[in-house]
Write a protein that binds this DNA or RNA. Structure first.
Length: 722
DNA sequence: GAGTAGTGTCATGCT
DNA sequence: AGAGCATGACACTAC
């Protein structure tokens, strides 16, 4: 658990990640015990109901809908969003890494145990031959997926790709037991390479479908070292399957988790062009520290191991931009380009790849299917599709879209707004805080017929709300409880609706109601406000305060809670309520003043009260408008982010399509190239010639041909219209 | 005690 | 010109 602590120290984000993933892991413990589908899904992403539930839970609890803007849970919320985004970015990383572990197997027959027991993230670097195999398998997987013909594309003409070593004995060995497998692999030790399919078939034959220990588990340092040290035990025919899958399961989960973390952190790091740098990037702080306890594969130990056993030094990371520049925009590429890092760890000879498959590999890095297909071919056919479908569809659709949308723009305010939208009752009472007959009531009547009927009926009874009715109204409001729970919080403010006096024209009572009644009876306004405050279940403190307040003498309470103008009005013996002073239409107001013989001080005070009351309501509306404006802007941002996410998704789909097309073109061109013969019947050398596609067909062009020369197709060229 | 949110009030400009 | 509205700024209060 030490590594957990270390992750904890890295911040709340990782804490949240841990929490969420712990849940997954717990589920998968039983999942594993039942010998059910492999652990790939854990690494690859939420392909099971567990993760789905997990994300639903995240969304339900942490997406802000149920979080108050001031709630500290928002920290979890935003952290979770980042987590989800990070998980999104993981989608294309897992499979390539898992695929590569197979190469460790075939590369070093002595390390069968390690390769089979370790995970994909353990980077098995190999030389050109391996790469060729990878490409072959990848291409065949592509063809298989695309329904293309099973043309053999062993790339016979490509010397640089290294040897293709399909062995008949290996074909037999794939049906044999693990003992035989070990022996076979041992016997193959002298070989530089063998085809990926053959190797993986052997593995598949040894490890029945669904278990696949070699791909499920992360390679720990100790385990990685074990093969070379404990080769005899392996070669002695010890059953590989059971012990590995059983004993390594708990550790594997940890390792996979750390692999996830490692790759997540990798994505945040700058991609280096060499494998050594990449591994160095992994070590220093996070991964190395986290991997020490559980001996995860991404730390320095693994790189050391790889350097020792698999000669990573010769590996290089080809530049993605070489082959596939225009397809990536900086935004998308920032993550996509980094993903190939792990994949490239296994690519020791990029030039070979590029020369033969062109953008295939690079595009394959962009999207998982081809690499997945490779893994799929040999290990779990279920893996790739669920992976891609879940990550690209489910996660992008259900999580990424929303999360991306919320990533920047989903503020606490919007969270509270959404919360309020779900909780219509609470939103009705905002302005009722001032008094039962306050504008909120009228506004409530605007938004809720039920509540308006009760409140407005109460307050319009008298026209100008009297003290008694206010008290009653306060009681009504308090009794309504759910409708009138006053919470002077942002989210409640957001629910304020504008005063719309025009709605009440012709209805003097309602028009009168449609104003702030703060200047009503002091007791009514403040007391009812506090009553409403007490109705809020979340304001227990206020409730206690209210209980104490209720015990106090009413007059005392009135004096204390009255506004200045109310007190002044009482002191000046103003014969009508502040409610009337403020809310009456100017004509009625003037008539009211005319009815009563008032001195100058009284008139001045009344006019001040009216002015201040009007201004107070105006200020409330102004603030409400501000908030609504902010919310609308945030909604706009959210919409734009959703749109952006959708566009990104479409872009990915287009890129996927382009990649597949490129692969097809590449395979066809290779097939075509292999069939081409010169005048003497000899095949053209791939190092000397290449195929150029033009509008009039395919031209065979010498590589040393300059651009100008290429414009003159008078050289050796053949038009192969296919 | 400081920070913050909510609210009331004033001043000002505009309709 | 007066009334009303909108809004920035400030002060007060409660948390």
């Amino acid at each position: 658990m030490l590594y957990l602590k270390k992750y904890f120290t890295e911040g709340l984000i990782q804490f949240t990640i841990l929490l969420s993933l712990i849940g997954v892991r717990l589920d998968l413990d039983t999942y594993l015990n039942n010998q059910l589908p492999p652990l790939h899904e854990i690494i690859l992403g939420p392909s099971s109901a567990y993760t789905q539930t997990q994300f639903h839970n995240l969304r339900n609890t942490l997406d802000g809908y149920g979080i108050h803007p001031k709630s500290v849970d928002l920290d979890h919320f935003f952290a979770t969003r980042r987590l989800l985004n990070q998980v999104h970015s993981l989608d294309h990383l897992r499979v390539p890494s898992t695929e590569l572990s197979a190469w460790l197997v075939h590369r070093d027959p002595e390390s069968v145990v390690s390769a089979t027991s370790q995970s994909g993230p353990s980077i098995a670097l190999d030389n050109g031959g391996s790469l060729e195999d990878v490409n072959n398998s990848e291409a065949s997987a592509m063809r298989g997926a695309g329904g293309a013909s099973e043309t053999n594309y062993s790339l016979s003409g490509e010397d640089s790709l290294g040897a293709v070593a399909p062995e008949d004995s290996q074909e037999q060995g794939e049906r044999e037991s693990s003992d035989d497998l070990s022996k076979e692999l041992t016997s193959l030790g002298a070989q530089t390479s063998l085809s990926l399919q053959e190797c993986l078939r052997l593995l598949e034959a040894t490890f029945p479908f669904g278990e696949e220990p070699e791909f499920q588990t992360s390679g720990s340092t100790s385990q990685l070292r074990a093969p070379t040290e404990e080769t005899p035990s392996t070669s002695q025919g010890i059953p590989l399957q059971a012990p590995l899958s059983q004993s390594d399961t708990p550790l594997d989960l940890e390792q996979q988790w750390q692999d996830i973390m490692s790759i997540m952190e990798l994505q945040d790091m700058e991609v280096n062009s060499t494998v050594v740098n990449v591994t160095m990037n992994n070590d220093p702080s996070n991964n190395n520290a986290s991997s020490t306890d559980s001996a995860t594969s991404f730390g320095l130990p693994r790189s050391t191991l790889i350097n020792q056993d698999v000669s990573l030094h010769q590996a290089s990371l080809p530049s993605c931009s070489q082959d596939f520049p225009p397809l990536f925009n900086p935004e998308l590429d920032s993550t996509m380009v980094q993903r190939p890092t792990l994949v490239r760890l296994s690519s020791s000879n990029s030039s070979n790849i590029n020369s033969t498959f062109g953008a295939t590999n690079l595009t394959g890095l962009f999207l998982p299917p081809p690499l997945n297909s490779t893994t799929n071919l040999t290990t779990t056919p279920v893996l790739p599709d669920p992976f891609s479908s879940l990550l690209e569809e489910s996660m992008l659709d259900e999580i990424s879209l929303l999360d991306l949308a919320m990533e920047e723009g989903f503020s606490q305010d919007q969270a509270s707004q959404l919360e309020d939208e779900l909780d219509s009752d609470s939103g009705l009472s905002l302005d009722s805080s001032h008094s039962p007959a306050s504008p909120s009531n009228s506004e409530t009547s605007c938004s809720s017929a039920a509540s308006s009927s009760s409140t407005s009926a109460t307050f319009s009874e008298e026209g100008a709300v009297g003290y008694s009715t206010d008290s009653e109204a306060a009681t009504v409001e308090a009794e309504e409880g759910a409708v009138g729970g006053y919470q002077p919080e942002y989210s409640k403010l957001c629910r304020m609706s504008y005063q719309d006096p025009s709605q009440f024209h012709g209805i003097p009572q309602l028009e009168s109601v449609n104003h702030n009644h703060t200047y009503n009876l002091p007791l009514a306004s403040s007391y009812s406000e506090r009553s409403q405050m007490s109705t809020s279940s979340s304001k227990k403190g206020r409730d206690k305060q209210l209980q104490q307040t209720k015990l106090q003498p009413p007059q005392d309470f009135i004096d204390r809670q009255s506004s200045r103008d109310e007190r002044r009005a009482r002191a000046m013996d103003i014969p009508f309520s502040n409610e009337k002073i403020i809310n009456l239409p100017v004509e009625e107001f003037n008539e009211l003043l005319a009815k009563h013989h008032l001195n100058e001080d009284q008139l001045s005070l009344i006019r001040d009260i009216r002015r201040r009351g009007k201004n107070k309501m105006a200020a409330q509306n102004c603030r409400k408008r501000k908030l609504d404006t902010i919310l609308k802007l945030e909604e706009g941002v959210q919409d734009l982010q959703r749109e952006k996410a959708q566009l990104l998704k479409e872009k990915m789909e287009y890129c996927k399509c382009i990649r597949q097309t490129k692969q097809k073109v590449q395979s066809l061109s290779q097939e075509l190239f292999a069939q081409l013969r010169d005048e003497e019947g000899r095949p053209y050398s791939a190092s000397e010639y290449f195929l150029q596609y033009g509008t009039d067909g395919v031209l065979l062009m010498p590589r040393n041909m300059t651009t100008e020369q290429s414009n003159k197709p008078d050289k050796k060229q053949k038009d192969k219209k296919k």
